[in-house]
Design a protein around this nucleic acid. Sequence first.
DNA 1: CTGAAAGCGCTTACAG
DNA 2: CTGAAAGCGCTTACAG
Lengths: 351, 351
Amino acid sequence: MNALGKKIRIKDIASLAGVSPGTVDRVIHNRGQVTEENRLKILKIIDELDYKPNLVARSLANKKNYLFASLCPEFLNSNDYWKAPDDGIQRASREILNFNITVRRFYFDQNSVQSFQKKIKEILDIKPDGVLLSPVFRDETIALVKQLDEKDVPYIFIDSNIEGLRNISYLGHNSFQSGYVAARLLDYIVPAEAKIVIARIGVTEPSNQATHREEGIKHYLKNISGKDNFIQLDLDPENSKSIERFRNQIGKEVRGIIVINSKAFEVARIVKETGLKDINLIGYDLLPENINYLKEGIISFLIAQRPEEQGYKGIMSLFNHLVIKTDIERENFLPIDILTAENIEYYLNYI
Amino acid sequence: MNALGKKIRIKDIASLAGVSPGTVDRVIHNRGQVTEENRLKILKIIDELDYKPNLVARSLANKKNYLFASLCPEFLNSNDYWKAPDDGIQRASREILNFNITVRRFYFDQNSVQSFQKKIKEILDIKPDGVLLSPVFRDETIALVKQLDEKDVPYIFIDSNIEGLRNISYLGHNSFQSGYVAARLLDYIVPAEAKIVIARIGVTEPSNQATHREEGIKHYLKNISGKDNFIQLDLDPENSKSIERFRNQIGKEVRGIIVINSKAFEVARIVKETGLKDINLIGYDLLPENINYLKEGIISFLIAQRPEEQGYKGIMSLFNHLVIKTDIERENFLPIDILTAENIEYYLNYI
DNA sequence: CTGAAAGCGCTTACAG
DNA sequence: CTGAAAGCGCTTACAG
């Protein structure tokens, strides 16, 4: 469309420039083999008429097939956190199928570096045009993207970020800030003098993301609300001694708990079994077990990061970058969503 | 794509059925003029091969132009609430431009039924294929959609809903529930015995939406938290006497205020000027003035309803219904988003 | 360096 | 009731 609302076609530009459509196409796609004189003339006309290519026609004519690869942790059932990004990836795939885009999904075991490495090899073997991944293992991710960089294959990180790499985009939370939000909410609902617990669940090293959340929480409590009556507690839900220790600690004076990974339900279970009434619990991520405790009132707030959208937008960003050739935001921090029993339903039903 | 990953074309179906592509097309689009025998044969093949039309090709070949009309309140500057839905409508328009869709936007004066009626006439004159509107005026909306129903023109409501009409979709909050959320938040942050104010700002009748919110708030306070220490206060921010009265009322014992329309900033201003410290204020909608008071800490929570997305999804729903012919959700309740000073930034920056 | 021609998958008059 | 042909706007070998 130009200013007059008429659709400008390559054919129109060609006849105005006194050349054939093929020549215009060469200019548009910088394929060379055009005299500088013609090139400039054509570019001028394109600019003046504000020519916008018809992407529908381009896609239909284009023989090029694009192959995207995604690499995320595997999930065993629909309860798993990683089902959501996968759903988003599939939704985007369906939407761009007719644009000759194929998306191949790869999965690795979060507890096995080897499986990550193996999948990376498989991905490099299929020579993808773009890659979407969750960079769970730092060193292996760096090794992978080095190879992608060499081949000029763009890649996008979701869920967590590794700074200093050449990913065209990151889609996920600012985890430090999401710690801030959790601390702020707790600050609203527990009395000023109450004791607070920052809980880590499980025996593995806390992820990058959990670590940053923890930093955010502590920073807020210390510097904004001026508190220092918080302690850190580890809980191994597989270990009855650990559970007992945890139970004893929270039994006295503790009024608020923030769980820094997605396993708030483990704490909720203990709170419920013990019959503790005045404890406010805040967690992350909408795992079904977390949601149940939220609805029951055992968990006060859950903080969510739109995982489905991370997968969807990730694939769409590759598409926009490679096919539509629009600019992509380097850092795309998703909203830090606050859920209670009262607004969770419409959040879950949406999309 | 079929199960084998091969792309099935109309041509393929035609040769399998021993007919020409034209005949297959007639069957696909129910244009008749095909023997029942051929029709059934072709439908069987389509089903077995799980044929999915190439929408890109369809769109390119299709001579049909679709004209959509939108009708929303006018806005004077980018601060206005109604800028956001309009942005969403424009974003969707751009995205589907190459599918031969034109969107014409109409605006009316929220304070003038006449302007609404006038625009309705204009919309009917251009004979749109689909209409998106905010049904601010009930009777006039009913009169409009009666005419649209006669012509089988689909229409979608955003922002607020009118029950019992044949709109193909509604996109907006469940306002009663969003009242629930506000009351729930206030309940968390004010002491059990504290006095609460439900405030209406302005002299015009409260909208449907504000009324439903108010019902939700009262229902929650009475039935869930078992409170009856709340009062309702009107504030006319243009009237200094009204302001004085409001100021006096909230000066004593009141610890929480919920503003049921989008003008929480009017109350925030009074709270700030008066220097009241222990009042928790909750409002709706992300007007720039509301956002400023949220960041300042005068407003504790804002509840938002994704207005940009309402406009975007509204147009995309018309597109999907008319062009792609997918099923549309009749009621599409958007998430009731909870914003604090700590998570507002990422919410605003995100598309 | 350039242009004419064929083709992407679907739709639409048109002739029979 | 049916098929052959032309066309949507763009891209891609191919011949010159």
